[in-house]
């Protein structure tokens, strides 16, 4: 890539960080150039972020309506899916799916709840409730 073409689009997803890119100068020699981001990359990133947020929002309302346990929401809110949660807890998928049922979730032992909490970075209290904020923004 020519140095002149190194994107400097100040993309939001970099949050003022820069990425090192290899680019050629006028003599064709390679150097590292700091890029403030490419809006094409930003669009792809935001597409993925929006998809994750959409899933978290859906999950939020399903938990609110009592169809699913709070675990279901926290999984998506932590940008995970069943596969990632299963891999990161070591629990089988079918077992986690059972824990998505509110009636079963309510009866889970402290040990299991603690394990979920550790994996998702939540206290037991947080894990067992829905956050009150509205689900349009957030995630950190």
């Amino acid at each position: 890539m020519d140095k002149k073409n190194v994107p400097q689009d100040n993309v939001s997803t970099y949050a003022n960080n820069k990425k090192a890119m290899y680019a050629t100068d006028s003599a064709g020699n390679y150097n590292v150039v700091a890029s403030s981001g490419w809006k094409i990359e930003e669009e792809a990133t935001m597409q993925a972020v929006h998809e994750l947020e959409r899933m978290a929002r859906d999950a939020y309302s399903r938990v609110k309506h009592g169809e699913k346990s709070p675990l279901f929401f926290h999984m998506y809110n932590c940008r995970m899916d069943l596969q990632v949660l299963s891999e990161s807890t070591g629990f089988f998928k079918w077992r986690i799916k059972r824990h998505f049922k509110p009636s079963i979730f309510r009866k889970l032992s402290d040990k299991i709840l603690e394990h979920y909490g550790d994996t998702l970075g939540l206290s037991r209290e947080e894990l067992c409730t829905l956050p009150e904020q509205d689900m349009d923004k957030d995630n950190g």
Partner: peptide, 29 residues
């Protein structure tokens, strides 16, 4: 989503696919 995924794997994760080609070009130089 699939197209976006390809681009993300290419441009965002690590340094991305195109980025690796430029690194390798720099190595060849």
């Amino acid at each position: 989503l699939f197209l976006g995924h390809i681009v993300r794997m290419q441009e965002e994760i690590g340094t991305g696919g195109a980025g690796f080609r430029f690194i390798y070009a720099s190595f060849l130089q």
